[in-house]
């Protein structure tokens, strides 16, 4: 009863072999077992998008994913985007556009943008808004986040 399960996952191209209780969420696994604290907890109910990560190419709120469910998956967190000191173009665009204030929504916002631009390289404004609808931000009013996504599109061209 309630025994631990063994899972193997790849996070930011690094393989992990772990024993987890079924009630461990992917969010807590990343933050507390793997020390990847760039993924943030904002609501723990899938409503805010701060805990967004990319699982097998798809964005998910990691607070609503059990670690046991992602056995075998490849996961990208915010820590997996930049190469050393060199920022990913999306990260750079968020910095340059003033799209970062308190920074708590930022990792989720950037990962959602990453998934968007992987899927649609030159999205319309409606497509950007549709993709980012689940990432809440209280600081920026979103104007500069839209700017950042548009600037990222240019940087990636």
């Amino acid at each position: 009863m309630e025994s631990k399960h063994r899972i193997q996952i790849t996070v930011n191209e690094e393989e992990h072999d772990l024993l987890v209780h079924p009630n461990r969420t992917l969010l807590d696994l990343l933050r507390y077992d793997l020390g990847l604290t760039g993924t943030k907890e904002g609501c723990d109910e899938g409503d805010c998008g701060a805990c967004t990560v990319i699982v097998n190419g798809k964005v998910m709120t990691s607070c609503l994913v059990l670690a046991v469910e992602v056995d075998g998956a490849a996961i990208t967190t915010i820590e997996g985007l930049h190469q050393g000191d060199e920022l990913h173009p999306i990260q750079q665009a968020f910095v340059d556009s003033g799209a970062v204030q308190c920074g708590f929504c930022t990792p989720g916002m950037i990962l959602t943008t990453k998934a968007l631009l992987d899927e649609i390289s030159d999205p319309s404004e409606d497509e950007i808004k549709h993709y980012l609808e689940g990432n809440l931000c209280r600081c920026t009013g979103y104007t500069k986040i839209l700017d950042a996504v548009n600037n990222a599109v240019q940087l990636l061209k």
């Binding site: 899938g46 964005v59 709120t61 609503l64 959602t112 998934a115 549709h130 689940g134 990432n135």
Partner: peptide
């Protein structure tokens, strides 16, 4: 389908 939750939710 597009009106349900967010893309993160719809992916799950």
């Amino acid at each position: 389908a597009a009106t349900l939750g967010s893309i993160q939710i719809r992916n799950r």
